[in-house]
Computed example of a mutant assay.
Amino acid sequence: MLKRFFLASLMVLSVAPAAWAQGQWPDKPVKFILSQPAGSGPDNVARLLGERLGKPWGQSVVIENKPGGQNTIGAQAAAKAPADGHSFYFATTAALVTNSYLFKQLPYDPQKDFVPVTFIARSPFGILVRADSPVRSVEDLIARSREMGGQFTLGNEGARTFGGMIARLFNARAKASANLIAYASNGASVQDLLGGHVQAIVADVASTAALVKQGRLRLLAVTAARPVPGFETVPRLADLLPGLDLVGWFALVAPTGTPQAVIDRVSQDVSMALSDPEIVQRMATLGPIAEPGWKPEQLGTFLREEHARWGSLAKEIGVLPE
């Protein structure tokens, strides 16, 4: 009797991966957990993908926003989510990489609590001023910051955020003297720029593209080394400051222990969605640049390389974890 029980157990274990692969997943709504609020750049992209993926999966994709704590609230929630193949973390650079160099203690482990699924998109940042600003170029901004010292203000989403790190690196490498003003969010910095309370900001292109196209903000430069679709004529910081390629990104990861067959299926389906011309076009209007075709192991290698790169950059500007 006992022997038959063990044989039956082994059969169930051997059949389980095949069952996942044969489409018995998902059997309930799939959850994408985000560390950003509704209406943010990552949220817009996640909802666009969720809308497309819900059709082949036969289940709705629920977007669960858990903003706050500089990504730690959402990341912790995702790390503790059931590893049953129905919960994923729609993560950003800050959550998976740069937070490791900004905080002495995190309520989650970026490298141990998650397994890679697939890359989603790159999200370039930019340096922006009001459309009526006398600052017409990055060179002009650098010169004015030196002349004015602490009187020239450069806003960002927070000292210990990806945007804040970009602002510090820009100041250091350009030998600028901008007074870095930290905000609680990109949205708050944008509103203060529009209101004339700061003279320039560092913000992601996705959240500011509409205001640039409306003629309310001027994009002086992008932080990507490659041209940004829709803003091909905008100067790149890398042309002025060689090697400065600071691009945010979105990636999908899952709680450690999630079945590999599900991870492979989701990775494949997301890549197919990102290859759809309609999705590419719609995403381009939001700002991020889709990058389909990433396998889980490729994302794993990329994350390790990003940790090494940002560890070096953190030392360069003297960032100490707090």
Results as ranks from 00 to 15, higher is better:
L13I: 15
S207K: 02
Y108L: 05
P255Y: 04
L274Y: 04
F152D: 03
K28I: 13
K104T: 14
L154S: 08
Q22D: 11
V45Y: 02
A174Q: 02
F32S: 03
S9D: 01
A206S: 15
L240W: 02
G68D: 11
G126N: 08
L194N: 05
A38M: 07
P229R: 01
A81S: 13
G293Q: 10
L2K: 12
Q199V: 03
L7F: 06
D84G: 11
S14E: 09
M165W: 12
Q22S: 14
S185G: 09
A209W: 04
T98C: 08
A19L: 15
G23H: 05
A251Q: 06
A21Q: 13
P82Y: 03
L13T: 11
G196A: 04
F6E: 06
D109L: 00
S137F: 04
A174T: 12
Q22T: 12
A261K: 01
G164V: 12
A121M: 03
P107Q: 04
V115C: 01
Q268Y: 10
W294V: 09
V202R: 04
Q191G: 04
D204G: 15
A209F: 06
I181T: 10
S177E: 13
T153W: 00
L169M: 15
R218K: 15
K213G: 05
V129C: 06
A79V: 04
V45A: 11
S35V: 09
